[in-house]
Simulated scan of single mutants.
Amino acid sequence: MTALVTGASGGLGRAVAVALADAGHDVGVHYRGDVEGAAATVAAVEDAGQLAVSLHADLDVVRAEALDAACDALLDACAAGVGVPDVVVLNAFPQQVVAWDDLDTAAWDAYHRAGLRPTTALLHRAAARLGPGGVVVVIGSVEGFRPAHGHTPYAVAKAALHHLAAAAASALGRRGIRVVAVAPGLVAREGLEQAWPDGVERWRRASALGRPVTAGEVAATVAFLASGAASGITGTTVSVDAGWSASPAW
């Protein structure tokens, strides 16, 4: 079994790569700029007993034909390094705070060019190579359900990804390919409480479990959805948010 994980040089992407390795997948580790982080992920996958290869690709590409070519090149490199992927996890995505007043057309274009557009392109190019039993997992966000202040383009794009998973699942299901989205809540990381104490406290009050989720919890969900145990699950978005979505919104 082989998986390709985008944005896997650290954080959630690295956790997903390791969880898939623990489940028996060789892993293509995509990265854009963090060479050392990608190498660390490769080492972690190898420590789990699986093959891994680091795959550089910058998919923030303006010309449509150039983006298609970059997606094909990434898939080809994965196939050459560890095998043709039967699982593709679309995790890479920008997350900048952009004030509403700064969201002119150029800002919208730049955000979606770097996030939504390459995700949709890579899903389409990867699906063309997947056979029956192939799985695509799209990493969405709880902000696709309820946006936070300053995150308008991120939240809008993540909501689109949830619908992308449903639409792609409908289109690809008769070919035996599943497409599922995962919507993580606030993910704990080192230094988060120091950097954003107010936000973490508000999350604790709002979530049923009274805490953020861990990258490992989200990654375990991705690994389950990519497995045969989830063979009847497609076209839906699974929230991993410590019960945040169960809290009253009023």
Rank of each mutant, 00 (worst) to 15 (best):
G185C: 06
S207L: 05
V200R: 05
S170M: 12
A181F: 03
R175D: 10
D198A: 13
L172F: 11
A169Y: 03
F145S: 12
V137H: 00
Y154L: 05
A166G: 15
I139F: 00
V142K: 01
K158W: 08
P153R: 03
I139Q: 01
V182D: 01
L192W: 04
A181H: 01
A155L: 08
S170I: 12
R146Q: 13
Q194K: 14
L192R: 07
L192E: 14
W203E: 13
R175Y: 00
L164F: 06
I139C: 00
D198Q: 12
A168K: 06
F145R: 15
G150N: 05
W203L: 14
V180G: 11
V179S: 11
E193N: 05
V200F: 04
V138E: 08
W196G: 00
W203Q: 12
P184Q: 05
V135R: 07
A188Q: 15
A208S: 13
V156Q: 03
T152E: 03
G150V: 02
A155M: 09
A208T: 13
K158D: 12
H162S: 10
G176V: 04
E190R: 14
G176E: 06
P153I: 02
H151W: 01
L192T: 10
A157P: 00
R174M: 10
R189P: 00
A188N: 12
E143G: 02
E143T: 12
V136W: 07
E190M: 09
V180R: 10
V156K: 04
H162V: 05
A157R: 06
V138W: 00
R205L: 08
E201V: 05
R146L: 11
S170D: 12
A155P: 06
K158G: 10
G144W: 02
G191M: 06
A195Q: 13
G210N: 10
A148M: 10
